[in-house]
Design a protein around this nucleic acid. Structure first.
Length: 708
DNA sequence: AAAAAAG
């Protein structure tokens, strides 16, 4: 008990005091009284906890952590000490990384403050890098020629990844000359040349660049010639497959599945046409092309689903009612497409842009399906889960559970979250009692499987949210291992049904599709590019040394703002910097303990701060109402990351703005990235104090403004 | 680089 109070009474309040003490002297009196009461009676802690709730929110948050069942374990003392030592512990842990980050920040500040004094120093460093770059470039041209053969190889990767986009690219390239952007570009090129002239070495590169540009105009040709090759490769692979042992097993399952599907299909014949359409017979093609060319063929038109209700799609009345309570009165297109397919027992690949209602699209039919399969059976104590949902981050797992849990409870099913960063005890306890749906992150789930505390052999449905992300290096192996555990005890040797969802579903999921999916139904929503709708995109070209100041002026505003940084250290540093500048801000990244992560995100959703600085941990799936500005302090490396970060704003038809800060050197890369993301964004130069910054930080145009 | 396990 005392151990509970010690750190709490002292240090956290010391942390929070400066901000909250201002509010009220009552607050202070209350706070002072508390430890005394706590010391008198052990239980007083709980009563106080309530009294405290109203007046001292930070303390309440701490206390909530305390009152968790697992918190009583002896190890917890050390655990508490972490948040208490808050500012210190992380620093020690990061030392190298953070020092680097801090040096960078000091450099930024110093440059901003003292300008020329420090500048020579830093500039000395920069040219060095530039020179290295040049050196590298010097190498490149040489290789370029040798590369050409290699390039022939390379595009294979590219086009396997995104043939669909390539096609679009072609179209767009044709358009480009017409586009305003295009007419701007030459101007930029001239600027570049000017700069290059300054650097005596550069002109040479210019020529190479031109050469490269010429290549580009040829690219389509390359791609055309290569695609067939891919297809051939693919076909080769397909041909191999039947020979594979795995594959030879599958047909058996297929038949079983088909039998099952046929039964279920009967009551809903009308839907067949758009679920499987013509692709039913050539299923291998369907599987292979899934992710690219054929995807569009199975797209759902918004008009098709007008007037359809969740009930029509096959969901029971309890679920329909709870959905309507949650604000989902009528199904979004992605939901209208996936619900019947899931209920039929088909594997599903679905792509719907950020904020298009994917969680309900798999959550509702998942619950319905589990319910049907349980029909007539009693809920047994200690039953093993029937469904599992995997998410890439803990916050997302939590959020998915917040959506699915009420749906499940409405029909008497139970969910539990299984994710790391918190004591296992409560999660294991829930599993012992028996749950129907497990929602969590790969690490802890695999951990519990290996400990024999989680049994997935009865899992009938496995969902991967943000599936393409889950297929990235380092993520995919645990996911594969987990999926291999699912459904091993299903009757008839059937395998579990797999549902893969993402806003950016592409070739990346091939590894999982090949191994785990059978004749998947593939959906995307027609006519909904990520760019369509309500988000305004802009790119600010800035001097690197201005970054911190420009960020501060962008973030100093009324609306809710989400800032993305590439590294944890920079996220932390920016949050501190904003705080120092008098702008309340918190951070969210993997170097914070889970309690703090949850609390900081909560601070944004509850409105206690308006600025959250996050790493890409917050890029995908996280929904916070009314974020109207997303600032990318560091430009993303991947177009998918851009789309997901941008998708934190402009949700459910609201207006949103995305601003990306880049330096001049990054311009071309950024243009290419935006092309791939199919986003049009003006590039604008900005300096500290420009009115432009104020305008961007100001009112975000609504959808109506944008269309008019 | 980030994310995901540590009674």
């Amino acid at each position: 008990m005392p151990k509970n109070h010690k750190p709490k009474g002292g240090r956290p309040s010391a942390n929070f005091e400066p901000r909250y003490a201002k509010k009220t002297s009552f607050h202070d009196r209350h706070r002072q009284g508390r430890p005394v009461r706590d010391a008198e009676t052990g239980r007083g802690a709980e009563r106080d906890a309530r009294g405290y709730d109203r007046d001292a929110r930070p303390a309440r948050d701490d206390r909530r952590v305390d009152s968790r069942p697992g918190s009583r374990s002896p190890g917890h003392r050390g655990y508490r000490a972490e948040p208490a030592a808050g500012e210190r512990a992380p620093k020690q842990r990061w030392s190298a990384q953070e020092r680097a980050g801090r040096d960078e920040s000091r450099a930024i500040r110093n440059r901003a403050e003292s300008g020329r004094v420090d500048a020579p120093h830093r500039r000395d460093d920069r040219p060095r890098f530039d020179r290295d770059d040049r050196a590298r470039r010097d190498d490149r041209p040489r290789f370029d020629r040798d590369d050409r053969p290699r390039r022939d190889d390379r595009p294979r990767f590219e086009s396997t990844e995104r043939p669909r986009f390539d096609r679009d690219d072609r179209a767009r390239r044709d358009d480009r000359p017409r586009r305003d952007d295009r007419s701007d570009r030459p101007r930029f090129d001239r600027d570049d040349r000017a700069r290059r002239d300054d650097r005596s070495d550069r002109p040479r590169f210019d020529r190479d660049d031109r050469a490269r540009r010429d290549d580009r105009s040829d690219r389509p040709r390359f791609e055309r010639t290569e695609r067939p090759r891919f297809d051939r490769d693919d076909r080769a692979r397909r041909d191999d497959r039947p020979r594979r042992d795995d594959r030879s097993d599958r047909p058996r399952f297929d038949r079983d599945d088909r039998a099952r599907r046929d039964d279920r299909r009967a009551p809903r014949p009308a839907r067949d046409d758009w679920n499987r359409g013509t692709d039913r017979a050539p299923k291998h093609d369907a599987i292979e092309d899934v992710v690219h060319e054929r995807l569009a063929a199975q797209s759902v038109q918004a008009a098709e689903v007008a007037g359809v209700t969740f009930g029509d799609l096959g969901l029971g009345s309890n679920i329909v009612e709870i959905l309507s309570n949650m604000g989902a009165e009528t199904p979004f297109p992605i939901q209208a497409a996936s619900v019947p397919a899931v209920l039929e027992g088909r594997d599903v690949l679905a792509r719907g842009r950020t904020g298009s209602g994917k969680t309900i699209a798999f959550g509702a039919p998942l619950v319905e399906s589990i319910l049907q399969s349980q029909k007539g059976k009693k809920r047994e104590f200690g039953r093993s889960p029937r469904a599992i949902v995997l998410a890439p981050t803990r916050e997302l797992a939590l959020q998915i559970d917040r959506t699915i849990q009420p749906i499940a409870r409405s029909v008497g099913l139970f969910t539990t979250q299984i994710y790391g960063g918190v004591p296992q005890a409560r999660q294991v306890g829930a599993l012992k009692k028996g749950v129907d749906i497990v929602i969590g992150t790969p690490g802890r789930i695999e951990d519990l499987i290996n400990q024999g505390k989680l049994d997935l052999s009865d899992v009938r449905i496995a969902v991967l949210d943000e599936a393409d992300h889950m297929c990235e290096l380092g993520f995919v192996e645990p996911v594969q291992r987990i999926l291999r555990h699912t459904g091993t005890a299903l009757p008839g040797g059937a395998s579990s049904q797999k549902l893969l969802f993402s806003a950016t579903l592409d070739r990346e999921v091939a590894a999982l599709v090949d191994e785990f999916l059978v004749e998947p139904a593939v959906f995307e929503v027609a006519g909904e590019t990520q760019d369509s709708g309500t988000i305004e995109h802009r790119v600010l070209v800035i001097e690197h040394r201005d970054k911190a100041e420009i960020l501060a002026s962008l973030v100093d505003r009324d609306g809710r703002t989400l800032v993305f940084s590439r590294t944890r250290a920079f996220a932390e540093q920016l949050a501190e910097q904003f705080e120092d500048a008098g702008i309340p801000a918190v951070s969210l990244h993997g170097d914070l303990n889970q309690a703090k992560r949850t609390r900081n995100l909560q601070k944004l959703t509850s409105g206690r701060v308006n600025v959250l600085v996050a790493t890409d941990v917050a890029a995908r799936g996280i929904h916070v109402d009314d974020i109207d500005l997303v600032v990318q302090a560091d430009a993303p490396d991947e177009y998918k990351t851009y789309l997901h970060r941008a998708g934190r704003t402009g949700r459910a038809g609201n207006a949103g703005r995305v601003v990306t800060l880049i330096t001049r050197q990054r311009r071309r890369r950024m243009t290419e990235l935006l092309d791939r993301a199919e986003i049009d964004a003006p590039f604008e130069e900005a300096r500290v104090g420009d009115d432009l910054l104020e305008e961007i930080a100001g009112r975000v145009p609504t959808a109506a403004d944008l269309t008019s």
